[in-house]
Design a protein around this nucleic acid. Sequence first.
DNA 1: CGGCGTGTTCAGAA
DNA 2: CTTCTGAACACGCC
Length: 264
Amino acid sequence: MPELPDVEGFRRVLAKHAVGAPIRRVLVRDAGVLRGTTARRLADVLRGRLFRKPSRHGKWLIAPTDRSAVLLFHFGMTGSLEWERHGAPQRHDRVIFAFDRGELRYRDLRKLQGLRLARDDAEVGAILRALGPDALDVSPRTFDERIAGRARLKAILMDQSVIAGLGNLLVDEILWRARINPARPANRLSGPERAAVFREMRRVLRDSIRVGRVPPRGVWLTGRRDDASAKCPRCATRLRRGTIAGRTTVWCPRCQPTRRGRSA
DNA sequence: CGGCGTGTTCAGAA
DNA sequence: CTTCTGAACACGCC
């Protein structure tokens, strides 16, 4: 599930329920999600501490504490962060932070990513150093400069070191709305085309965050990924699918031609 | 049983 | 140097 809007939702969960209250207990139910730390160290460092206001960069959730330590979450393809007031843990609750009023649970099926514990802000910087600017923060000018690579546009937009936060579903949705073929070389887009991608990126992100997840089904292209006979919601042309940047890619050959007048 | 998947990383190839 | 592909990670669902 998690792309930028989902992680923003998790950030809000943490901010709403888990900021400013002492962490009473850290229960690591599956140490397989701990990256570069151990259950012992995680508990020793966090027990009795408070989380301060969390931030987000791309798909990373950054949770500072009232000491120098900072907890970082990445959710891979199947992770989430849940607040539960009571009840038995679910099968995929890998780490549980217990507070007086409830529990914050890092839930993840596939364990493709996990939790990291940084000693201080400098270590956070080192972990996030390779990321480009957040997709919601980047200015139109910086966006234009950064996506000017030779690779196919979808690969560029998915590259977290170029722009942080966009994933497979979001990029397909953005390019469908902007009516640009995902296989176009990024550095051959016109100025207006780059502006369209930027505009639709903002719009898709805003709408997704408002709904609290990405992406809402319904009229979105994303609701049609799994159906091989699905039609374009705009023009009813049969959607096409292929592989770009190693990921399943869905597009409309009519709305998103490779070049003027041709289909992909 | 085989194939697939909202993410990332790495080795190796082009 | 840049870009691309496939495999790996782990698990549930066709």
